[in-house]
Design a protein around this nucleic acid. Sequence first.
DNA 1: AAGATTGTGATTTACGTACCTCAAAATCTG
DNA 2: CAGATTTTGAGGTACGTAAATCACAATCTT
Lengths: 342, 342
Amino acid sequence: MRPTVRDVAEEAGVSLATVDRVLNRRAGVREATIARVEAAVARLGFVRDLAAANLAKQRSYRFVFIIPSGPNIFMRTLEQQAVEAGRRGAALDRISVEVVPVPPFDGAALARALDALDTDTVSGVALVATDSAPVREALSRLHAAGLPVVTLVSDVPAFRRSHYVGIDNVAAGRTAASLIGRFVGGRRGKIALVAGSMLVRDHVERRMGFDQVIRAEFPHLECLPVLEGRDDAEITGQVLAACLAQQPDVVGLYNIGAGNRGIIKVLSGNPAYRQLVVVAHELTPHARNALREGLFDAVIGQDAGHEARSAIRILKAHIDGMPVVEGQEHIRIEIYLRDNLP
Amino acid sequence: MRPTVRDVAEEAGVSLATVDRVLNRRAGVREATIARVEAAVARLGFVRDLAAANLAKQRSYRFVFIIPSGPNIFMRTLEQQAVEAGRRGAALDRISVEVVPVPPFDGAALARALDALDTDTVSGVALVATDSAPVREALSRLHAAGLPVVTLVSDVPAFRRSHYVGIDNVAAGRTAASLIGRFVGGRRGKIALVAGSMLVRDHVERRMGFDQVIRAEFPHLECLPVLEGRDDAEITGQVLAACLAQQPDVVGLYNIGAGNRGIIKVLSGNPAYRQLVVVAHELTPHARNALREGLFDAVIGQDAGHEARSAIRILKAHIDGMPVVEGQEHIRIEIYLRDNLP
DNA sequence: AAGATTGTGATTTACGTACCTCAAAATCTG
DNA sequence: CAGATTTTGAGGTACGTAAATCACAATCTT
């Protein structure tokens, strides 16, 4: 049988109340006594039964997810997964999840949303970060209030948040470059790059990683300046169409951000574009179709459901003072070809 | 506040004891009363608090993982992850995990191990299945005894087990073929295939998927007969070396099973072999090095930690009568290039 | 109709921890 | 050494469910 607090009390030769004071770091216990209790805990290998503890504590967790609004399908999936994970968590643990939408690429709006949070009733925050000064300040305020903060998908400097949940975007960019470079197969030419905005870290980092590898390993390829599509299918389509019309020797295309629908529309509009090696992000239904039809050659994905669940687990672990299981929370760079579509 | 059994009792106009009988499907309640209680449950949206229930029940879960012994690093990782997940589970839920080693590729031994399980004290079984008649029969016996059974990595026919935790091996084979086909870049030639044994389903399925895609999409490539390395580095190395020495026009290599060490030794022994496009399975330290050095071109992986945790969650869900969260338990086919190594 | 069987209710204890109160003991202060 | 203060002990209640006991009523047997 597992040892209980009673066993610890007996082993340490103190009362149950004292063990309780030590375990819950309440004041009013002499150093020497604390040491005795801790020794007993160690000797018995006592581990607090979290289920029973939470039952007694009647603790509940109120988590807020701040996610960009708009048609970005990945963000919508993330939102939906967060809500669903919350619904499920409500049954087992006492978790509730609320989603607060904010306009995309708008640091000021995000900062306002952060400042509007009631730090007394909210127990943790997960957000897709736009990396700007007001956001960083707002995060510092949350940190000061003792709220755990998790960044999703796109990060901010490490000391502003408790944890980052998302892929390594530099590595994702490198991967995209490697795939395009190898799939192009020795031909020389230019590569078109489309991002949402250079105001979000994830896009900046992907671009960086991409550049690195192209320069180092595929010097016969050349990256064109990054187009900005604001993660909007319309705009993305327009800027890409203009670029392709103007540049004759494009052999590859890397869509760093969202707006795959716009890309697909342009590509399927001109048979010549089928030759292009295309890599995009996020396995949305559109991207999946494009892969199946050979319009896209690879898609780099990340598991929105995993990220939502992971964020919740991490916030909860921070509050409970439990360690985070790194292996479980690491978000992988997924590569999809036509052949491993789930 | 969440409704409790008391609320349900009041709402249904019956006593707590009756509610308890209905909820736990105990005998001695009239149909009409059962219906009334169930209506009340539905009306209030009552969900039993599993933590409290397990606390009261003093229920504990004893899970047995049956994993092939031997030097196969992936299997060793799986074992270690299972033990670790069990250690962690001991604190929260009351989970214990034991690992039973069996000789690899030995259906009779596996069947004996299954039959040796004490179905009274074991609450669930996870196994890496060798697919043979005695194993299928032993699984049927476990099923009859009411034990949930999860297959890991390699499957058996669906009605013999409760759930399969692992990648879609046919798709994995297709993915390998697609990568090799595209990386070869139009050259024509032969592809060497090395598996552990054609007695395990995962290897058979990978091979099938691989063949499919090569035939359909890369007709200029030809698959050589499958070599069997018994997931052993020594043997794998020997059969591969012999094959390569004999076949002059091999352009690609797919290692379906383990024994990457043997492959690497052969490849690094002859500079000419550096030209080969090589795809292997499982991101072991050796495979990782080989990727980094360009000896391997891609590695197809699966997350052993995820699989171990997933198996435990699924077994527990079966016992608790809770639904399985498919999205969470789906094991992805991971593709690793030099650039997205974690 | 007496006895057996079955359905139901009321009540209690238990699980392991948190947290509260009140009193007693130990230690410190002057 | 008295008085003040800090530390410790004893005991209780609570969390939400499981499960047991006992009592009684309703229904069925013969």
